[in-house]
Nucleic acid binder design. Structure first.
Lengths: 223, 223
DNA sequence: CGCTGCCGAATGAATGTTCATTCAGTTGTA
DNA sequence: TACAACTGAATGAACATTCATTCGGCAGCG
């Protein structure tokens, strides 16, 4: 019996069903599900796997969730909402676009880097079948990207960022680079702190790889 | 009945079974499978969907492929091998690391940009469950990334690229940015030529977003 | 306090469905 | 006729979901 629980999945209080149930059990099932999904993939996960891992009977799962898909949805939504709330608050505190991007990068990598199971689910399971989940996760995506785009936009407006590149493309590059760091970390056998690579990524994004340019922009080593 | 076939999936000649069969039918099944996988996702695709789309009987599929997973594997392997062969040849022709990266980026986006179904399969289906496919697709990944890393490495060795950033991280950023452009394109409702954004991505990667640096490195507008 | 009866959360065996896969039979060809 | 390719209905396994039953706890009562 391993420790399943980790941050990022705050108990929402009561279950989805209707009646109020045991909040601890609800959370236990959710955590177990994330662990099982991370391990075997959504479609290869059995409700009985989840129930076993949560130490409840199969039927009990249905007292808390409508079905398998709802469990995944709930896990993703809960985690994502918590992240976005946090990210917004943090970003508002900062004055310059560069600082904001730096902070976002750190928060992104730190959030997923602190919960490998959740990271696996986000990196792997979230991007299945074009229709179902992706329509849905696309909303999240857009919401997050708009934070990035806002920062880039502001930087372009004030002239600290180049204006000759489409903000959307730049934002996608930024996100894509971070996302790939997570994937790489998830698939890696090595143990390293994911958030440690955040500065390198931001650095490349802001300054590029080419020598002789405006290397080494001073940055306030946020957290 | 839509046009299924596109480039990138050269007929390997004969089927997996053993006896030699109709190569055209083999290809038809493969293309149909990619289309169905792209549409509904691997796990939601039925063999009968594939058979229907290929205009063959369910059983016929098994004359050409061992099972559903083998179809996916074959599609991915075939496409990937063709891409890698092409990419290697092209990259060898070029002298500087920057040119090589630029070319790789173009080829990457062009290959997936010319076959949306295949792109969907690569972006969505390929990254499922940590175990099965990803172990396998990780090999491909590494193979491709090593091309990128070689270019970056050389650039660092000759001093045209910064040496203060880990080559592996830089390569991941490069790949991640491109990868995200594909995902974004796949999910986008708009019709645009994916390979057109290749220059912007490479530009950010080489020169960064920050103003006042070494903007606008001349590049030979390859293809 | 001890007993009874009730409540509803929890259980897990039973159900029904959904396919992947097979194979007996058909078609087409040499 | 012999053989290969093909067909698609039949098979059976795998699972999601249901629901009749269990059982721990507690309110009410004597």
């Amino acid at each position: 019996m391993k420790q399943e629980s980790q941050p990022l999945l705050p108990a929402t209080g009561n279950a989805g069903g209707g009646t109020n149930r045991n909040a601890e059990k609800y959370q236990r099932i959710l955590d177990a599900a994330v662990a099982v999904f991370a391990d075997k993939g959504f479609f290869n996960s059995r409700i009985s796997d989840i129930a076993d891992r949560a130490n409840v009977a199969d039927g009990t799962v249905y007292l808390y969730f409508k079905n398998k898909e709802e469990i995944l949805m709930t896990a993703i939504n809960t985690a994502f909402d918590a992240f976005m709330r946090h990210a917004r608050t943090e970003v508002e505190k900062l004055a310059t676009p560069a600082e904001r991007l730096r902070r976002l990068a750190f928060l992104h990598l730190d959030a997923l880097g602190s919960n490998r199971n959740l990271a696996v689910v986000f990196q792997m399971e979230l991007r299945q079948s074009t229709r179902f989940l992706s329509e849905f996760s696309h909303h999240h995506m857009v919401e997050y990207l708009s934070l990035v785009r806002a920062a880039i936009n502001e930087g372009q407006a004030t002239g600290v960022f180049r204006r000759d590149l489409p903000e959307k493309i730049a934002a996608n590059c930024f996100f894509g680079a971070l996302d790939e760091m997570v994937t790489s970390w998830v698939l890696s056998a090595h143990e390293y702190r994911l958030s440690n690579v955040s500065d390198s990524v931001v650095d490349i994004f802001l300054n590029g790889m080419q020598s002789g340019g405006n290397q080494k922009v001073a940055y306030t080593g946020v957290q």
